[in-house]
Design a protein around this nucleic acid. Structure first.
Lengths: 231, 231
DNA sequence: CGATGAATTGACCGATGTCAAGTGGCGTGG
DNA sequence: CCACGCCACTTGACATCGGTCAATTCATCG
């Protein structure tokens, strides 16, 4: 099985569990689309009419509140999908997806998706699993906001970023995405100023290197320790 | 169609959309169970091996964090169901469900549920819808914690409680469940003391009546106004 | 080399949690 | 039936985290 897309679908959490023949059908039912860096692939509030699978590139999933707060939810990277809501009629996207670099995505319209889910019930099951997982993730974030302080939330945020978009080197883990302090603040649930102060302190301790819009985590363990034994 | 259970299933968000014959099958596949007031119907961390539908009674859905914080998520009342995770193998319950009064519930084991979802794909679709809805709800709570103050969150909490478990009278809306200040605090994301102070202030203003473990909202509109125009 | 926007830093303050000391209502047992 | 004690609740004093504002420094790009 040489086709990288089929491989990707096979290991994708939405389409995992289907046979190769079925995956080929799924693949042919979707269309490839390309998005410019910085462009919005989809915006919150729009009707959820497509399911998207990232083939290559990286995008960020954000939400803007009525007060103007921007919340960075997570990154969508090769193999990740977004748009489960498209499987249900009448849904809207709750988040916006913005391309960071150039993105190539495989896209299924909700009509096509309806056929696919009808034919392959595994897809529906997978989607339910994903949704439950995300709910717990969201719940974790809520709890973190209630029970942890800024320092802990920031440590957790950096560790998550390492996992999601990090590149390990001999020195440490480079968070390989341009992220302003403001972005990080939104991600961790804090103000720019608190983030700046905390990062600076960690840098003085040699735990991280903090550059302009780029961070390298040198000592993951030290950050891990901040979270407390129970996490 | 006189059977109250079938009626309940028909309007339930998990089984809605099935034909009467199908509902009868669904119903006969489940078993009725009774739970004592105060007893735990299920506990967080247990394998999710059952789906529960409340027939009569009321239960509360809570989560205890590693730090010992208790989070009140919501109430489960007649017609509500809990345990979507039982439709997927290997899941655990993330919340505990505790009976407030005596509860009569219709219960389906995960094996039976697997058959039902296989046969009636609508159920799977419904579950996905529910899960997405809950996710957004969770997201709303997260945002409230980040952008609103204690007073606003408390107002929102009371209004939600009115909707969920309130009984309207000529005076106002009685929140018809014994809820300590501590419970309310956990629900709104605040300390007991802040809750006590705020409630007392509202009582002096004549917006509510605050008794021991019982609250009556006299002026919903005043609370509503606190939330700001944008909500 | 200047302009621009990111990042830092210090001073300040306010919302809210914590602690400690009451107060009051309700149930129980003598 | 009364008194005691328990527990929910209240209230005041206080501490503090972390947000806001303002001023400054720094890096990057044209």
């Amino acid at each position: 099985m040489e086709d990288p897309l089929i491989n990707m679908l096979a290991s994708n959490n939405t389409f995992g569990g289907l046979s190769t023949a079925e995956l080929q059908h799924v693949r042919s039912a979707g269309t490839m689309r390309r998005f410019e860096p910085g462009s919005f692939i989809l915006r919150q509030g729009e009707p959820a009419d497509n399911l998207y699978l990232m083939f290559c590139g990286c995008a960020k999933l954000t939400h803007v509140t009525v007060e103007g707060h921007q919340i960075l939810q997570r990154f969508v990277r090769p193999g990740d999908s977004y748009g489960i809501a498209a499987a249900l009629p009448g849904c809207e996207f709750a988040w916006s997806l913005q391309a960071i670099d150039e993105c190539i995505m495989l896209v299924w319209s909700s009509e096509v998706l309806a056929e696919l889910t009808m034919r392959y019930t595994t897809i529906m099951r997978n989607m339910l699993r994903i949704s439950l997982f995300r709910r717990r993730e969201m719940n974790q974030r809520y709890l973190a906001l209630r029970t942890s302080n800024v320092e802990q939330r920031l440590a957790q945020a950096l560790l998550q970023l390492c996992q999601e978009v990090g590149t390990d080197t001999s020195e440490g883990c480079i968070i390989d995405v341009t992220l302003s302090r403001g972005d990080i603040a939104e991600y961790a649930g804090a103000s720019v100023y608190s983030v700046s102060r905390t990062l600076k302190r960690w840098e003085r301790q040699g735990w991280i290197r903090a550059q302009r819009e780029r961070i390298t985590v040198l000592r993951r363990q030290s950050l891990q320790d901040l979270l407390g034994v129970a996490v």
